[in-house]
């Protein structure tokens, strides 16, 4: 059953050093506030999972919190490459992270397999693709009915998944709207889950087929308005594209990066996110 608590409590109780953790969000509802709290608490040696690691994974990697990254596309979409990730992989700063790289189809299927309690996922993929050469977790199976050879990858089963959602009701049922990505699968695949929400309401006021995670599938819920910023929360505030563009220069230099992290993460609190979206709300 979902327990309501502050974000620092939710992170401290659910994320441990050495965990495999997904801060999921496919270009929407990315749980920035949760990842910042993990950085503030100094939790290290993490295996990070995410289909589309972007700015917030660049921050976790640059702060030395990460041992390994499992992913399928690592970039600042429409802007460029992740400079902290590059510095880690190319130069070993602050540490050289281990990489396990897949395609989107593989990751999406692997999360679904995790949610479905299966040991692996199978799909028609990786044909002629070289990732199969460099990633020993990409294998193949033969269909017992047709003889077709299909790709196989292990299910993703995070120790804990963090997501951001629009709202929860007072029983802890969580509503996700808009581009729902792979968050439902990522929560159901994980042993524990933490959800930050824009608001807590009496009634989710939704329709029968909405994407709702029942409260008993969620471990902890924290109220963090703006907690996705600079990502967005559909119906609440738009994507802060200017911040994504600005990140490219901040991340280009180690000292500038560290100074930005001190000002905006280490010396900040979850409550600061509400201020960061004020100008976006009025613009929307």
């Amino acid at each position: 059953m979902a327990h309501f608590m502050t974000l620092p409590e939710a992170v401290a109780q659910n994320l441990k050093a050495g965990d495999t953790v997904a801060f999921e969000g496919f270009t929407h509802l990315i749980p920035h506030a949760s990842a910042h709290e993990a950085i503030r608490q100094g939790i290290k040696d993490l295996t990070l999972v995410r289909m589309t690691p972007d700015v917030v994974y660049d921050q976790l990697i640059g702060m030395g919190a990460v041992r390994k990254l499992i992913f399928s596309y690592a970039g600042n979409p429409g802007v460029g490459l992740l400079r902290r990730l590059r510095d880690s992989v190319e130069n070993g700063w602050p540490n050289r992270i281990e990489i396990e790289e897949h395609s989107h189809a593989a990751m999406a299927n692997a999360y679904e397999a995790g949610a479905a309690g299966l040991p692996f996922a199978t799909f028609r993929g990786y044909k002629g693709a070289e990732l199969a050469r460099v990633n020993p977790n990409i294998k193949s199976v033969t269909c017992p009915f047709t003889g077709e050879e299909l790709a196989a990858v292990p299910a993703i089963r995070p120790d804990v998944t963090f997501i951001h959602a629009q709202k929860a009701d007072r029983k802890g049922n969580v509503l996700i709207e808009g581009i729902v990505g792979v968050q439902k699968e990522a929560v159901l695949a994980a042993k524990r889950s933490v959800v930050t929400v824009e608001e807590i309401v009496d009634d989710l006021d939704t329709h029968p087929n909405a994407c709702v995670l029942p409260g008993w599938t969620v471990t902890a819920i924290s109220l963090v308005p703006g907690g996705a910023h600079p990502s967005y929360a559909h119906g609440y505030y738009p994507r802060d594209n200017a911040s994504y563009i600005a990140w490219d220069k901040i991340a280009a230099d180690r000292d500038r990066f560290l100074a930005w992290m001190k000002d905006n993460v280490l010396d900040a609190t979850p409550e600061d996110f509400a201020d960061r979206i004020k100008h976006l709300r009025s613009a929307a």
Binding site: F26, T27, H28, M51, P77, G78, V79, H104, A105, A108, N109, Y111, E112, F123, R124, G125, G178, I179, V180, G181, V182, K184, E185, C211, Y232, H234, P238, R239, N241, Y244, I245
Partner: peptide
């Protein structure tokens, strides 16, 4: 034009928006 492949504009103007596993399994594969 969206800056990312997931800007809200894309969802607002779409006929329907499906999950990412559904996208890759039913529609692409």
């Amino acid at each position: 034009l969206p800056l990312s492949i997931g800007d809200g504009e894309l969802c607002d103007t779409a006929v329907t928006t499906v999950s990412v596993p559904e996208m890759f399994r039913y529609w692409l594969q």
